[in-house]
């Protein structure tokens, strides 16, 4: 299973999602805002990042841009999580460099599928 960095400012959501991911065998790192997340990503190089977009200090779009601009973290897949149901959000997230997108409330099976497929392509990519 994988090492996943979850960047989420809402404590309840953070707790719930991390526990559920752990239940499915993932190792979960936690960060509470964009800047914190950026720092932890650089320090620990997770295999995947789940990024809430509306974050304090530094928002998810900006954090993603910086991650993608950094050679060290560029390859880490990012899944944007947002409560905005606006369809424009997905485009904006992708523009910022996110590899995938999911809306809250999280449907765990769907999210797990996305995580699996991203991890598969990335690991494959690294191997080749």
């Amino acid at each position: 299973m994988a090492k996943i960095l979850l960047i989420e400012d809402n404590e309840m959501n953070r707790d719930m999602l991390s526990r559920r991911l752990q239940r499915h065998g993932h190792t979960v790192l936690l960060a509470v805002d964009g800047a914190d997340g950026l720092q932890k990503a650089r320090a620990q190089i997770p295999e995947l990042i789940l990024m809430d977009m509306s974050l304090p200090v530094m928002d998810g779009w900006e954090a993603t841009r910086q991650l993608k601009a950094d050679e060290a973290t560029r390859r880490i897949p990012v899944i944007a999580l947002t409560a905005h149901a606006m369809a424009t959000d997905e485009q904006q997230a992708r523009d910022a460099g996110c590899d995938d997108f999911d809306t809250k409330p999280i449907e765990l099976p769907r999210l797990l599928d996305k995580i699996e497929s991203l991890l598969k392509t990335c690991r494959g990519g690294i191997k080749t």
Partner: peptide
């Protein structure tokens, strides 16, 4: 609606999780 969805998110999530547990 947006504000309502955040706590709802927790309700649905935790209830799902509890079912599993």
């Amino acid at each position: 609606s947006h504000e309502l969805r955040t706590p709802l998110n927790a309700i649905i999530g935790y209830s799902e999780m509890l079912q599993e547990e």
